[in-house]
Each structure stands twice: as C-alpha cells, then as structure tokens.
Amino acid sequence: MSAFNHRYKLKVEALGKSFTLHNRGGVRVQGFENVNFSLRCGELLALHGPSGAGKSSILKTIFRTYLADSGSIRFHRNNNPEVDLASCPESHVLDLRRREIGFVTQFLKILPRVSALDAVAYPLIEIGTDEEQAKEEARKMLTQLGIREELFKLSPLTFSGGEQQRVNIARGIIAPKELILLDEPTASLDQKSSEVVLRLLDQLKQRNIAMIAIFHDQRKIEQIADVAVAIGRNEI
C-alpha cells in the first residue's frame, strides 16, 4: 500500500444540522449533530440507523443541498487543494458536482420528456464526452443493470419502481467521480437486481472510488461495506 492510500478522501468532523422553521413560529428541528467519520479512496462507508435519524440529511449536507450549522467536511482532491464542503464557495461546489462528487438520490427526479438512454448519457455529455460514445456507454450501463433494450427510448417515469431506481443508479455512477453518495440504492430492488447493483458498487471500489451509502439491510452492509457508521439520535 502506497503512502497515498493512508490519506483520507473525506473527513467529516463534528457535523451538525438543524432546521429553523421561521413560518412555524421559529421551531427548531434537529437533523443530526456531532457526526464524525472518515473514509479513504476505494472504501464504501455504510450509514445505518432508524428512519428519521438523519442519514439522508447527512448525505445532502455533504452534497451541499443542505447547509451545515457546525463542523467541517474536508474533501481531499486529487491534484487540487483540499476543500471544506461545508463552507467553500458555491461555484466550487458546482465544479465538484460536475466532475468529482456524484449523488444517487433515493428517488429518480427527471423530466418526463427525456428517454432513459438520454438521461443516463447526459452526465457524460455534460463533461464533454462525444454524444454517440456517451450513448454507447449508457446502453452498456443500462444493459448491465438489467434494463431491457426496448425500454431505452421510453421515459423512465413510465417504468416500475425498481427499474427507475436502476436508471437512477446508472445516471449517478456513469460519469467518472471520486466520491459517490448513495441514498438507499437497493431499497426497491429484488434480490437479483440488488446483487447486480452491489457487484457494480464493488467494481467502483476496485476503481478506487470512495462511496457513502445508506442501507437498511444488515446483510448488505456486511457484504459490501468497509466501514459501518450507526446514526441515531444524539449519538454516533
């Protein structure tokens, strides 16, 4: 193992997030507090814990969809200075999202007039890949995830829940990234599709990509995760 592998890809320290609802009389809702963990390249960190514990909120805070109240999220970049995702300028976050940090959300959010193939090819086209080549890679990725070819031209919104989730995963991981956040990537998948997704995640690990994923199923955590972090109320 080279010295480089000892470096952290991501280090989350004393991270906290609460929501102040000004139009509900200023009620303060605690999302999570004092969350600490770190992960290295090629590692998958699993977040688990009861519903409402703040797991998804942690991913959204790392992706900067939520603004952290306290703590830091240090992201180590290849050939670039380290950044604190909790506080760096918005334009940095936009660059990072395009090239380095991916997010597979829990539910597919997509325009109803975009085909599955175009939706999956888009992240590659966005970073300058030739359109034909991007579509070829999208075809391969969808096939690998067990989406039938006759569905490629249809809107994923007409697909079943499990198919939608696989399109969502394909979209989230097709472009090369350094860190990928996955919110319950196998939640609505049957055993077989789940296995396919876990194999894909394993391939990403081999490619030295760091991942944080939310899982509910203990067996999946044992199967794929290098580190597991329990999230609960007021504890970690």
């Binding site: 929501f19 959204k60 900067r64 969809t65 939520y66 603004l67 918005e90 976050v93 936009l94």
Partner: peptide, 10 residues
C-alpha cells in the same frame, strides 16, 4: 444566495 437545490430544499 445559494445553490438552487439548497435554496429550494434548505
């Protein structure tokens, strides 16, 4: 002022 998804979600 912020990222559009942050303004809409948080």
């Amino acid at each position: 002022y912020g990222l559009t998804d942050q303004i809409l979600e948080d």
